[in-house]
Design a protein around this nucleic acid. Structure first.
Lengths: 234, 234
DNA sequence: CGCTCGCTTGAAACGGCTCAACCAAAGTGG
DNA sequence: CCACTTTGGTTGAGCCGTTTCAAGCGAGCG
């Protein structure tokens, strides 16, 4: 079993409030779940049974859209929250979630969580701030999807992945994703992503080795999208 | 001055918690502001000085995007919150807001609000739920923008406006908006909106009279977008 | 060894945007 | 009160970016 005291995820909401004496009793009600690669642990539309924290691993959050087209909402790793949108009585999860690689999850049921939030205002406040930030990100994304060209959206996705997962010593992303996933995240097609990767390679902005992708020149790549876009973060 | 006790906006966060004895002292610190038509009361990028509630009126929330293109984030009317994304120390408003017609606003400064949230957990909890809902809406919108055709996006906007503002006895929207605003909301151009209005009129799904627009057949119009789209709300 | 899966490229078709001209209604000033 | 300007709405034509379809390639695996 995983205990929160020795956990290293300082960005975790629970970890932050660990000094609060009220929180201890809730920690006993936490479940730890182990997911294999590609295993789905939240089904879209299923009744919500609580909130997940990524203890260690990588997760993608997906949503089926029009024509059954898959949209990747976001990626998550250590310390991050998943399933927070299923919170509330009788709610269903509006998204699905699956492990990209072997992943350890902490789970609180809705009941436990609800009690915790009503008893510990600090946690509620932190969770509120988290929602507010997510909202920011999401609204920025709306703007991006509405106004960016496909090339810009793809570049933006690469920068997001790099910012979030970092790179290996060789300069490749610390996460393995098929081209299709980049497409589903950027909101375009696999072919477009491939074409753009090809041209970015020619422009010496990207490097690839098999399925692995890395950014060759971050400032220059950033410039590609920040030229006209005053300020977009996520 | 406007007092909350006689206020009719039962969906208002404050109104809901009015029975709470702790809330009274904060109400004295509320400011009431009157806005004329087209008057802007939140400037994008300005330091945030608090949260607004619409007491009575109609407001549009805008954001300048790429190439200075204006994006309408959402519309708001009686009882709704505006400027909630500027919450937090040293924050700036990420959006602008202006009155569509004469509007009455209630304003709490960040200081007052912050104290209130820390002292009254119920309000924090309600605000958290509000953020969660907004997040839902926003993420749905991401999906729409990513996958709908322009025609579908425009139809969807009309349904949103109708759902939110209702219609007059003659069957026109209870809000007056230029075509350009529909375009900025749906994420397209004025010309597209006009073309789609024209064809929807021919299909007997829409009626117009000058600038006024109304839906002739709601179920049929809904069917236009729900055909392939499993479930999209907002 | 042959099969499958993911990646890659080209060509064609489509949708949406831009530009430009035009019109109607409303507002303004002599 | 009429001519003039402005504002918002409307339509058509052409262009460009993106998607779709189709075919081919290479690596990995049973």
């Amino acid at each position: 079993m995983s205990d929160c005291i020795s956990c290293e995820n300082t960005n975790c909401l629970i970890k932050k409030n660990l000094k609060n004496p009220l929180i201890a009793k809730f920690l006993d009600e936490k479940h730890t779940i182990k997911c294999k690669k590609s295993q789905q642990f939240i089904m879209e539309g299923a009744p919500a049974h609580g909130l997940f924290f990524v203890k260690k691993g990588q997760v993608k959050v997906v949503k089926t859209g029009i024509y059954g087209r898959e949209q990747i909402v976001r990626f998550a790793h250590d310390g991050e929250i998943i399933g927070h949108r299923g919170f509330g009585p009788g709610k269903q999860y509006p998204i699905g979630a699956l492990a990209i690689k072997e992943t350890l999850l902490c789970n609180f049921t809705n009941d436990v969580l609800s009690k915790m939030l009503h008893e510990i205002p600090d946690v509620t406040f932190d969770l509120m701030l988290f929602y507010a930030e997510e909202l920011n990100r999401s609204e920025t994304k709306v703007r991006k999807f509405a106004q960016m060209t496909v090339r810009e959206k793809v570049i933006d996705s690469f920068l997001y992945i790099h910012r979030k997962f970092g790179q290996t010593d060789e300069g490749f992303f610390n996460i393995q994703l098929p081209r299709k996933d980049f497409a589903d995240f950027a909101g375009t097609t696999e072919e477009q992503v491939i074409r753009i990767i090809s041209s970015l390679k020619k422009e010496k902005l990207l490097i690839t080795k098999g399925k692995k992708i890395g950014i060759a020149n971050i400032p220059l790549l950033k410039k590609e999208i920040s030229e006209h876009n005053y300020f977009l973060d996520s």
